[in-house]
């Protein structure tokens, strides 16, 4: 296990070094990434220019949700975002070589691509987070701090699991890759807003079956000390670590099943 982390660090380190070599290109890329994600926040600002509350949420509270969703998504994108290129990898026949190496295929795929330029999005989300925290009055307790901090890796794991499950489609059809976008990019957009604005079926499907509600909605409710507009049991606000673990497990199983199919049905 330690050895796996070590290899992962080496793989990522080598890629960072290589990507930083092209400073100009990296800067331009990062600049572009920053602005494209900033649009989402601009939209929130535009909305709140027209109303003072979205359901019972103020602009600062929505900004807080936005920041959490955006930062965790950007980190996930940085770590495994190149998974969007996975269908191409299968098409080129470059997956087979992973099967000849003495490591799990999922580990190799995830560790092989690291996109440093996405760090600009993390930066952008962080700026919004600072803005949100400075304008909100949060009654901090140790538990609230813990819930907030723990929700970050939890959210990353949830997004990662969605991404991995989506990538598995490539084992069956190589041009269906865009399906995943609906849940990854769609997922982060959805999580930027409070869940009570969505209709029941949408909430159930994309909030609980695909557990996007646990990315930041529930942890935020607890940290902000807000009563749940949906009137759901309070213990859900602490569940993100458990949900993340279950999501990871499901993703691992789906991947394994997909690889088994690939190995019996041929490339």
């Amino acid at each position: 296990m330690v050895d796996t982390v070590f290899v992962w660090r080496k793989l990522v380190g080598a890629q960072i070094r290589s990507q930083l070599q092209y400073r100009m290109s990296f800067a331009l890329d990062a600049f572009g990434s920053f602005w494209i994600s900033f649009i989402d926040f601009l939209v929130i600002l535009v909305i709140f220019r027209n109303v003072s509350r979205l359901n019972e949420w103020t602009v600062h509270e929505v900004a807080f949700l936005y920041a959490l969703s955006s930062i965790t998504f950007a980190v996930t994108d940085m770590l495994i975002g190149q998974l969007d290129q996975f269908p191409q990898k299968i098409r080129d026949g470059n997956f087979d070589i992973l099967l000849v190496r003495p490591r799990g295929t999922l580990f190799q795929v995830i560790a092989s691509d690291f996109a440093l330029r996405r760090v600009a999005r993390v930066l952008q989300g962080s700026i919004v987070l600072v803005y949100a925290l400075s304008t909100l009055t949060i009654h901090w307790t140790v538990l609230r701090a813990i819930v907030l901090v723990v929700s970050v890796p939890g959210a990353i794991v949830i997004f990662s699991s969605i991404w991995v499950v989506g990538a598995c489609i490539a084992f069956w059809t190589t041009d269906g890759g865009e399906f995943t976008n609906a849940f990854t990019y769609g997922g982060t957009s959805m999580a930027q807003y409070p869940f009570d604005i969505y209709s029941t079926w949408l909430r159930r499907l994309l909030g609980f079956v695909i557990p996007l509600a646990f990315v930041c909605y529930f942890p935020a409710l607890y940290v902000l000390g807000k009563p749940d507009p949906l009137g759901l049991p309070r213990f859900l606000e602490f569940c993100s670590p458990v949900v993340a673990a279950v999501a990871a497990l499901v993703a691992g199983l789906v991947w394994r099943f997909a690889v088994r199919h690939y190995r019996s049905a041929g490339g």
């Binding site: 041009d175 269906g176 890759g177 865009e178 399906f179 609906a182 849940f183 990019y185 769609g186």
Partner: peptide, 14 residues
């Protein structure tokens, strides 16, 4: 065709 279907699906969700 699958790319189109997947894309239409994404647009629907959004």
């Amino acid at each position: 065709p699958w790319a189109t279907v997947a894309g239409a699906f994404t647009n629907t969700i959004f």
